[in-house]
Amino acid sequence: MKLAKRLALTTTALAVATAGTLLSTTVGHAAPAQSATAHVDAPAALKVPDGNRLTGVFAAKGVQTYTCADGAWKLLEPAATLSYKRDRAHRPVALHSRGPVWVSTVDGSAVNAAALVTSPKAGTIPELLLKATATRGAGVFTDVTYIQRLDTAGGVAPATACTGADQVSVPYSATYAFYKPAK
């Protein structure tokens, strides 16, 4: 898919995800202090290996966009806005999209990852343990090693058949926990 079309789809999905909320962040916007707790509740299968420490916990709201492929729904991409879990104003501090990738809207740092372990949950998208494949920039996502997608709600592909070039964006929410090497 051409980059311009992909960006247009992601922008549309983010607009749906935020239900009209304007996402405006300026360079230098200070993020609220986030004190990461030493632990998040996760299934044993999604445990992060020893030698890593929790550095950030974010609430995510967005969509899982599916496209029709051979009569079945296939995940095209996620599109979500992340905010600090304890920020009552829900100010966006990162965007999550296809890759999967998370990009800080505060400092431009980013992390790409690949799923290592899937933990199914009834009626929602599964919880995941992801391993970072690349990071760039200096900031919140510098040196991230692992990511957990927890507390998932929604986002499941329709159970109905599809035809042609159908696409659908299904709302979801989750908690993303980010880990870096323990020092």
Results as ranks from 00 to 15, higher is better:
residue 56 G to I: 00
residue 68 C to P: 08
residue 67 T to P: 00
residue 139 G to E: 04
residue 183 K to I: 00
residue 90 H to E: 13
residue 89 A to N: 05
residue 24 S to A: 15
residue 9 L to D: 14
residue 36 A to N: 07
residue 158 P to W: 12
residue 117 V to T: 15
residue 97 S to D: 00
residue 130 L to Q: 11
residue 2 K to F: 00
residue 107 D to H: 00
residue 145 T to F: 04
residue 159 A to H: 07
residue 27 V to S: 14
residue 6 R to G: 06
residue 12 T to A: 03
residue 149 R to A: 15
residue 151 D to E: 13
residue 33 A to G: 10
residue 47 K to F: 02
residue 57 V to A: 13
residue 104 S to D: 05
residue 47 K to L: 04
residue 159 A to W: 01
residue 64 Q to A: 14
residue 153 A to M: 09
residue 153 A to I: 08
residue 68 C to E: 03
residue 61 K to D: 08
residue 147 I to C: 02
residue 18 T to Y: 05
residue 10 T to E: 10
residue 165 A to E: 03
residue 28 G to H: 11
residue 17 A to L: 03
residue 154 G to A: 07
residue 172 Y to S: 05
residue 175 T to P: 07
residue 156 V to T: 10
residue 96 H to I: 04
residue 161 A to N: 12
residue 8 A to E: 12
residue 124 T to E: 06
residue 120 P to V: 11
residue 129 L to G: 03
residue 53 R to P: 06
residue 74 K to W: 05
residue 17 A to M: 02
residue 95 L to F: 00
residue 48 V to N: 01
residue 130 L to A: 10
residue 175 T to D: 05
residue 103 V to H: 04
residue 20 G to V: 11
residue 57 V to N: 06
residue 68 C to M: 08
residue 45 A to S: 05
residue 145 T to A: 04
residue 32 P to D: 14
residue 35 S to Q: 11
residue 26 T to V: 15
residue 111 V to S: 08
residue 57 V to R: 13
residue 2 K to I: 01
residue 88 R to N: 12
residue 162 C to T: 03
residue 146 Y to L: 05
residue 55 T to G: 02
residue 86 R to S: 15
residue 116 L to C: 01
residue 101 V to G: 11
residue 172 Y to L: 14
residue 71 G to F: 11
residue 37 T to Q: 07
residue 66 Y to W: 06
residue 93 V to H: 11
residue 73 W to V: 05
residue 10 T to H: 14
residue 123 G to S: 15
residue 82 L to D: 14
residue 7 L to Q: 04
residue 42 A to F: 00
residue 68 C to R: 01
residue 26 T to E: 12
residue 131 K to T: 05
residue 163 T to M: 08
residue 26 T to M: 09
residue 152 T to I: 04
residue 21 T to C: 02
residue 69 A to D: 13
residue 2 K to G: 10
residue 93 V to K: 10
residue 177 A to K: 01
residue 169 S to N: 00
residue 146 Y to T: 02
residue 125 I to W: 09
residue 109 S to I: 04
